[in-house]
């Protein structure tokens, strides 16, 4: 074999691996479950906002429409590409009408009703709220929005959904109409499900890598006191954990675990051997944040997002064996392999 053909073979192998990673069709079970969870979480967020709508939106909000617009449009010398039509809606009535429509669309997405349409619409509406509510946002808003953004690329409404019922109801018409086949997809392997899965997986890796690296710049994450400082912030506290101060070995151990888990997540989440332990770490870490640091929505949503690393075939084997056989899947997951 010549040097040239060796390079060619290496390159072909690389392209093949890239294709398998991104374009191998995968079952939609994981994305369907995630749609249900993120849909409910986002609906809850909108519901809470509905009770305080004019506190956060409109002309008399904490950050008024005009101020919100100025924070983005360069009035103070800082501009960005964030834009929202909500900057222009002053009327409380119209804000309520708009919010009602948003909640209806989000609820439809959660239950998987016309998901091909309500998915992108849910994401777009959420994006408009984010660019309007500058200053009042935190990690929960980020992870919810990113998850919806990736799920809308997949047939996440094909299972555990109203769309699945509609698909059966319109089975005859669906076989003749390309539009209906697109609108009501089957729960079979698809490239869209794989691309959405990979994008969310990689985005999580980026979040944890930079979360870990930025912590690594702080002394308290190395001397172990960061966990004490975290439980010592009264505004975050939901359960008093200051008793931890009497157990330095425990709180410093928790600090070191958090730092190393975040830094190495992006490497150890991929091998099958280490993945369960990393996912267990996610449940412990985010469960702790949810229970003790008062960020229940953020903690729950991060645990749910980590579920994207659960192979869909594994879910299928437990909950939809018939569907799995129908889709022609007899072997355990391939999509979980790197």
């Amino acid at each position: 074999m010549t040097q040239g053909s060796k390079v060619k073979e290496w390159f072909a192998g690389y392209v093949d691996a890239w294709d398998r990673f991104w374009f191998q069709p995968c079952l939609p079970y994981t994305v369907c479950i995630l749609r249900l969870v993120v849909g409910i979480m986002l609906l809850y967020s909108h519901l809470v906002l509905a009770a305080n709508l004019t506190v956060f939106l409109g002309e008399s909000a904490w950050i008024s429409n005009e101020t919100a617009q100025q924070l983005h449009n360069g009035s103070f010398g800082f501009s960005d590409w964030g834009w929202s039509y909500l900057w222009m809606i002053d009327s409380p009535l119209w804000l309520r009408v708009h919010h009602g429509v948003t909640m209806l669309v989000t609820a439809s997405f959660a239950i998987g009703f016309l998901t091909r349409l309500t998915g992108p619409l849910t994401w777009f509406l959420q994006l408009m709220y984010l660019h309007r509510m500058t200053g009042a946002l935190f990690g929960f808003d980020q992870i919810v929005t990113y998850t919806v953004m990736y799920l809308m690329l997949s047939p996440c409404g094909s299972w555990l959904s109203v769309d699945a019922k509609l698909r059966k109801y319109f089975a005859g018409r669906r076989s003749k109409s390309g539009f209906l086949r697109w609108l009501l997809p089957t729960a079979s392997p698809s490239v869209g499900a794989n691309i959405a899965t990979r994008l969310l997986q990689l985005h999580l890796c980026v979040i944890y890598l930079f979360g870990g690296l930025s912590k690594a710049r702080g002394q308290s994450w190395w001397d172990g006191t960061a966990m004490w400082l975290s439980v010592g912030i009264y505004e975050y506290q939901s359960i008093d954990m200051t008793w931890l101060s009497s157990y330095p070995r425990i709180f410093t151990g928790m600090t070191h675990f958090t730092l190393f888990w975040e830094v190495f997540y992006c490497a150890l989440i991929w091998p099958r051997m280490t993945r369960p332990f990393i996912l267990l770490g996610a449940v412990i870490l985010h469960g702790g944040i949810a229970l003790f640091l008062g960020m229940i929505t953020f903690g729950v949503m991060m645990i749910a997002a980590n579920g994207i690393f659960v192979p869909p075939e594994l879910i299928g084997r437990f909950v939809d064996r018939k569907g799995l056989q129908k889709a022609g899947v007899n072997e355990p997951a391939q999509s979980g392999k790197k």
Binding site: W83, S214, G218, I233
Partner: peptide
């Protein structure tokens, strides 16, 4: 535009006062 311009520096470099 997509609100993905975040730093992800949660509780970093050190958890600080509120």
């Amino acid at each position: 535009g997509l609100y993905i311009d975040r730093g992800y520096a949660f509780f970093a470099p050190n958890p600080g006062p509120s």
